[in-house]
Design a binder for these strands. Sequence first.
DNA 1: CTTTGATATGAAAGCGTTTTCAATGTTGCG
DNA 2: CGCAACATTGAAAACGCTTTCATATCAAAG
Lengths: 333, 333
Amino acid sequence: MEKQTVTIYDVAREAAVSMATVSRVVNGNPNVKPATRKKVLEVIDRLDYRPNAVARGLASKKTTTVGVIIPDVTNIYFSSLARGIDDIAMMYKYNIILTNSDENGGKEVQVLNTLMAKQVDGIIFMGNQVTDELREEFKRSKAPVVLAGSVDSEKAQPSVNIDYVAAVAEAVKNLIDHGNQKIAFVSGSMDEAINHDYRLKGYKKALKDAGIAYDDKLVFETDYTYKAGQSLEPALSAAGATAAFVGDDELAAGVMNGLTDAGVDVPGEFEVITSNDTKLTELVRPKMSSITQPLYDIGAVAMRLLTKLMNNETVEENTVILPYGLMKRSSTK
Amino acid sequence: MEKQTVTIYDVAREAAVSMATVSRVVNGNPNVKPATRKKVLEVIDRLDYRPNAVARGLASKKTTTVGVIIPDVTNIYFSSLARGIDDIAMMYKYNIILTNSDENGGKEVQVLNTLMAKQVDGIIFMGNQVTDELREEFKRSKAPVVLAGSVDSEKAQPSVNIDYVAAVAEAVKNLIDHGNQKIAFVSGSMDEAINHDYRLKGYKKALKDAGIAYDDKLVFETDYTYKAGQSLEPALSAAGATAAFVGDDELAAGVMNGLTDAGVDVPGEFEVITSNDTKLTELVRPKMSSITQPLYDIGAVAMRLLTKLMNNETVEENTVILPYGLMKRSSTK
DNA sequence: CTTTGATATGAAAGCGTTTTCAATGTTGCG
DNA sequence: CGCAACATTGAAAACGCTTTCATATCAAAG
C-alpha cells in the first residue's frame, strides 16, 4: 500500500475550481477572489495537500536550491562559513545541497556537473584551487557562482573574502615589531591561490617593508592538519625561526603544541600567529593570537550576494571584501 | 540571450532514434544494439547533452537526494558524522540536502516538510529531542528516516549509535576506580533523550555498582558550548566534585580550561573524561581522556542503512549499535 | 522459405506543476 | 441601460524525462 499523494488536481476537483486557480492561491497570487481563496485553502487543509517541489521545479525552471561545494565540513573554518550560508539560504527560502570536494579538482568538476544536472539555481564554491577546467565549468553554468572565503587569481567570479594580503602583512609586521627576524611562513599547499598569491605576498611585503631578506628556507608547505603542524617542530627549530605565521588554525594548534611538547616556550621563545580566528584559538593553551575575520558573515554575505545574482538584480560590486582584524591572545608577546 | 539547453528530444532527432532509445542509453539499459548506442553516444557528446535531473525526478519519482537534518554543522561531533554520510551518499550516487536545526522542534518540523516537498528519497536525522510531532511526521513520510548518532526513547526509527549507557557507565567506573567519590555529571539539556535516558542512566548505574549514592547536586545541565563549560568551575568546586564526566568535547574543553585557569590541577586534583573523541581531545592540554566512538562510521553506516531502506531491501537489524571504547589520555589519572 | 522466440525500437501516456491566453464576470459611469 | 475597463477564472500547452505496450527486426530452427 503505497502512500497516496494528493495532487493539485485533486484539490481543484474538490474545490470545484481549476488547477490554475489552486496554483494561484498556493503561490499567493493576488488575482483570486477572497471567497474562492478561502474555499481552496479549506480543501488544501482538509486533504493535507503539499505541492510537489520537483514538478514545480520542472514547470517553473526554479528549484530554490543552491549547491555548496566545500573542501571538508569537518574543517571548522569552512563549516563556520557553511553555517552562515545555510542560515541566509533558509531566510530566503532556499535549500543547500552540500558536497565535500577535498579540494580535488576532478571531484569538484564532477560535483559541479551533478549540481548543474540537478538544476540548482546557484552555486557557492569554497576552495582555493580554481583550475582552468573549473573556471570553464563556471562559465558555462547558467547558474551564478560565488566564491566564499576563497580566491581565484583570475578574479573571474563574484566572491566574498577579506584582504588576505593586508591581513597577513599586518600579522607578520606584528611579529617583526616584536623583534623577530626569522619568521616562518607555514601554510597548506602552494597550489592554492590563497597561499601562493595572497598570503605569501603579504608575508613578503611585511618583510620587505622591514628590510628583511626573504628566505625560502623559512617557507613550510604542508597539510592543513593538526598532525602535520605538530611534526613541524624540528624543522622549524633547525631553520632558526623564532616565530611563525600559520595559515590555518588546526595546523597552528599543531605547530604550537609541537613546539610546546618539545620544550620550546610559546610565546617566550617562539611566537605563533594564526589566520582564521575559529573557536580553536581559544581552546588551546596558550590561546592563539590570530587574524580575525567574520567567518559566519563571509558565508552569509556570499549567500546574500548569490540571491541577488539569481534574481538578476544588478549588484554594485561583485567582489566584496569584508573587514579583518588582529586579535592578540597569548601565543604572541 | 538565455543559454540554450539541449534536451533528450534534440538528441533523439539528431541521432534519428526515439526519445525512448536515448533514455535507454543514458540509463545504461542493455536492450540497445551496440551500433545505435554508439551513434547516440556520439550525438550526446557532440551536443553536450546533460540529462535534467528534475525532469527525471518527476518522471521516475526518484530524486537521488536525501535530506540531512543536523543540529549545527559547526559542532565537530555532528560534522564528523556528516562527513561519513556524504561520502557514502556520493558513493551511492546520492546528494545531500543539509539543514541546520539548532535542535529547535519547530524548525525541525518545518525543515522536514520542505524536505518531503522536495521529494527526497530518504532522510537522516541528527538530534536528540524527537517530539511527538516529529515522530508523527516521520511516520507519515513516505521516505525512510534513520537517526544517526541520535536516540529516541521510543525507538520507533532505524538508527545507528553506540551503547551510550554502557559507555558512560564504563567511563564513570573508571573515575570511581581512581578513588573519586564525588563525580559530576555535566551535559547539555536534560530534554535530550541521550542525556536523561542514556547517559544519566549509565552514570547512575556506575554509581550504584560502586555503592555510591546518587546526588543530583552533582548533575550540571548546561549548553554545549565552550563558554558554558568554562564558567562552571566555581559550581563544580562548590559541589565538592573531584572528577567529571562531560557529554560533549567542546563543553569538556571549557570545563577543563576553566578548572585549569582557576588553578585546579587536571588531572591531579580533578579528573575529566569526555564523550565524543573528536579532534578537540588532542588539541587541549592536558589531552582529554574520552569515550571513543567511530564518528565517521556512524554517519557512514547510517547512510548505508538508508540506501537499503530506500531500495526496499530487507535489513536484518534496524537499530545498529557500533562498538565504543575508552581512550585514556592525560585528563585522567 | 516460414515460423518462432528473442531482441530492438518507437509512440505516446504520464509525472504534478506553472503559465499563457482567452473567456467570462463585475463594476462604474455617462 | 449599455459599454468600457478591470478583476477572476479556466483550458490547455508546456516543462524534459521515464516507462509501458505494441510493433518491427532478426537469427536460428524446421
